[in-house]
């Protein structure tokens, strides 16, 4: 019998701790596939965040470090400056990157650190029990917005790609979504493009934002969660390539 699909070697053969319908498993697989396709496993260093993906090193088989909440871009800076020939990526959620780590991502981007950021936006804090994230939509109910996110009390959903695109230190910024196979293929292309940019040692930070389902804390079935991304999240977080390096 012909094998038509197999697990990519850099994704470990194990079950994950993620909830049913969570997007992290998909995101991990796509990152691992890109690492294998580019044949960079033995020189890739990963940074796990604080959040649901804290155990990323249990699933992605490259050298990894787990760092304080939000500080991944600063840690990545130290690593990349010491070892410019390694491929460095951070894997961060919305609370990690857009809230507590807002200063670190902004300044790493502004310095043009040659790192790749995988930014998983599921509009909620997962690990701590479904609280409001900086990317939570207006009127979205969470543990800390029981009457829905109010602009008066809680401010607006924070759009990271739009914010970072204006910085000359960023090279490639794209927002994609994990909500259906067509879009998942686009995610794969974007992650590959971001890593390739770094492999080619081109200047600037690369970031791919993934809209990702959290059925557990959206109180939805996995299928409903995918539909909610398509119908609601993409209105606030439009899918597009915000910035791409000029073709040489």
């Amino acid at each position: 019998m012909q094998t038509v699909f197999s697990r990519t070697p850099t994704l470990k053969d194990c079950t994950t701790h993620y909830c049913p319908g969570c997007g992290h498993g998909l995101a991990h697989r796509l990152v691992a596939e890109v690492i294998d396709e580019l044949d960079i496993r033995s020189r890739t260093l990963g940074i796990a965040p604080v959040g649901c993906a804290v155990y990323a090193y249990d699933y992605i088989d490259v050298d990894m470090i787990e760092v304080p909440h939000g500080r991944a871009p600063a840690v990545a800076t130290g690593m990349k400056r010491m070892r410019p020939n390694n491929i460095i990526f951070t894997y961060q959620g919305d609370g990690d990157l857009a809230s507590i780590g807002a200063a670190e991502i902004l300044h790493a981007a502004n310095r043009g650190e040659k790192i790749t950021v995988i930014f998983v936006n599921n509009a909620v804090y997962g690990m701590t029990g479904g609280q409001m994230a900086p990317t939570t939509l207006l009127d979205q109910v969470t543990a800390t917005t029981p009457r829905g996110r109010s602009q008066q009390n809680d401010g607006f959903p924070l759009r990271i790609c739009e914010l970072l695109t204006v910085l000359p230190g960023t090279a490639y910024i794209e927002r994609c979504s994990l909500h259906d196979p067509k879009h998942i293929r686009q995610v794969k292309k974007a992650i590959r493009r971001a890593f390739e940019h770094q492999v080619e040692d081109k200047p600037g930070l690369t970031l791919v934002e993934l809209l990702s389902p959290c059925p557990t804390y959206w109180r939805k079935s996995p299928k409903e969660a995918m539909a909610w991304i398509a119908n609601e999240m993409t209105k606030v977080f439009p899918l597009q390539c915000f910035k791409e390096p000029e073709k040489s």
């Binding site: 760092v67 600063a74 840690v75 130290g78 690593m79 400056r81 390694n86 300044h107």
Partner: peptide, 22 residues
């Protein structure tokens, strides 16, 4: 060798962490 002026002491110690990790 490497010198980086960080955006904060928070970032500085985490840059140290990254460098030390390698």
């Amino acid at each position: 060798r490497v010198f980086v002026q960080s955006e904060s002491e928070l970032a500085a110690i985490n840059m140290v962490m990254g460098a030390a990790a390698t």
